[in-house]
């Protein structure tokens, strides 16, 4: 108990981003309206900190085959979103959980699926029945369990 009492003010003093969330349970949120809207047409706009800049570059250049779907948008919008995602990518802004995710990425790696990162996998080691819940649909549906995910909060719910 004494250790907790001492640690709490220390954590508050050191904390630079989130309130009341462990560093690895918070990711700097998406602040770019166009990114929120366009990505958000089909899924929550994932925070750029989950992937390095080169991954976002490839993703925004291959929208006509976006995990099997044609997610093409106009070139001007795509470029604006690409600029935002790469400027705030995990290897650029290492705050919050970005640091933990970047640790697993090899120097020449260009990952596309956030759910394949070991930092994700080790936190999501659930029975198949959890993934099969009808409101989950897919592993990338953060919001079905993390109600604050679109604001960057990934506490265990």
């Amino acid at each position: 108990m004494r250790a907790v009492l001492l640690a709490l003010p220390l954590a508050v003093a050191l904390g630079s981003g989130p309130l009341l969330a462990d560093d690895d349970e918070w990711m700097p949120p998406v602040t770019h309206t166009l990114t929120r809207e366009e990505c958000g047409d089909c899924h929550m706009a994932f925070q750029p900190g989950f992937l390095p800049a080169r991954s976002w570059n490839r993703m925004m250049g291959t929208l006509s085959d976006h995990f099997g779907d044609d997610a093409s948008i106009g070139i001007e919008k795509a470029n604006a979103i690409r600029a935002y995602l790469t400027a705030n990518a995990g290897d650029v802004d290492r705050r919050g959980a970005a640091r933990g995710y970047m640790r697993w990425i090899t120097p020449d790696g260009v990952p596309q699926r956030i759910t394949e990162n070991p930092a994700f996998v080790r936190e999501h080691d659930f029975r198949p029945s959890v993934w099969q819940r009808h409101d989950v649909v897919t592993k990338s549906n953060c919001l079905s369990c993390h109600k604050g995910a679109d604001r960057g909060y990934y506490e265990d719910d």
């Binding site: 958000g40 899924h43 649909v137 990338s140």
Partner: peptide, 8 residues
């Protein structure tokens, strides 16, 4: 509704 691919 709910997006059958993404759950959104």
């Amino acid at each position: 509704g709910r997006n059958a691919k993404t759950g959104r």
